[in-house]
């Protein structure tokens, strides 16, 4: 796992070897605004799973500092009682500059946990308050965790959320306005969803482990729905394609960056743009053409 996280040269071999072993785990994404209690709910779900005899992988993602590249990964604190739990494997990842709520190596870490035989993999996104759509490409089931009083926030990101979330959880439901938030969500869903899976809205107080069972129940329902409609298999196929595309893009970007750093012709061009002797658009067109020809 260390190899994939640090993009070691042997990563390719490792990943190629494990692909045939993947596809078994139920991958669940948890997204939502900061402070909604994603970590706590993730921890409670993991605990519930191991009690039920299942094994769980947990991936927690936190932002890297844009200045230093370092990161403070604090999610384990909220899952502290799982540190000695043999059925649970937790891995904290930093975004390392990647947008969209995931880390560059999230897919690989999930694949490894899947191949290692984890029954369920819980992926907790950064939680920037933005719609973190990336997770829905990787996960079978996406859970949107929110709290009472964030109604306005939900309104503004409504469209995006309704598209990606399969289950809504109103956490901290002991607070005022929980019922109202749940009702508002349900109304929005009624307007938006036409046929197919109708995302349920669940209330929970994760800090007191209330409602975890109901959330898990909804996850199970969603899984049955996916399997009944053939989407379970489809998601797996899509995921592999998505991984391929992501890797193509990453490799291309890597090559471009390297070329910009190393190719003296390109560096000359960069200097001319910086000096104001060449307009950036013309330069970009030239560079793309140049790189494309050089690569092929």
């Amino acid at each position: 796992m260390k190899l994939v996280e640090n993009a070691d040269p042997t990563r390719q071999q490792v990943m190629q070897a494990i692909v045939p072993w993947t596809g078994r785990a139920h991958i669940i994404g948890l997204t939502g605004p900061p402070g909604a209690g994603k970590s706590t709910l993730t921890g409670q779900l993991a605990r519930l799973l191991v009690k039920g005899g299942l094994t769980a992988g947990v991936v927690c993602i936190d932002p890297s500092s844009p200045f230093s590249g370092g990161a403070f990964l604090g999610d384990r604190v909220r899952m502290a009682n799982l540190n000695s739990e043999p059925g649970v494997f937790i891995r904290s990842l930093a975004t390392r500059g990647k947008l969209g709520g995931l880390s560059a190596s999230t897919a690989e870490v999930i694949m490894l946990m899947d191949a290692a035989g984890k029954d369920v993999i819980l992926v907790e996104t950064v939680g920037t308050g933005q719609v973190e759509h990336q997770i829905s490409h990787l996960a079978d089931t996406t859970i949107m965790v929110t709290v009472p009083g964030l109604g306005d926030g939900i309104q503004t990101m409504k469209a995006g959320i309704l598209e990606i979330a399969d289950i809504f959880v109103v956490n901290k439901a002991d607070r005022e306005g929980a019922e109202a938030t749940a009702r508002d969500l349900a109304h929005m869903l009624d307007e938006f969803i036409t046929g197919g899976w109708r995302p349920p809205v669940k209330l929970a107080v994760a800090s007191r482990n209330e409602g975890t069972g109901e959330v898990w129940e909804a996850v199970q329902q969603h899984r049955l729905h996916l399997q009944g409609t053939g989407q379970w298999e489809q998601k797996r196929r899509d995921r592999l394609v998505r991984i391929m595309i992501d890797n193509v893009q990453a490799q291309a970007l890597d090559r471009i960056n390297r070329a910009l750093e190393q190719d003296s012709l390109l560096q000359n061009l960069v200097r001319r743009v910086a000096d104001g002797n060449l307009d950036p658009y013309a330069a970009a067109t030239f560079v793309s053409g140049y790189l494309w020809q050089r690569q092929t």
Partner: peptide
């Protein structure tokens, strides 16, 4: 009373 982990970001 149960246990609680304080949130620390």
């Amino acid at each position: 009373f149960g246990l609680w982990q304080f949130p620390l970001a």
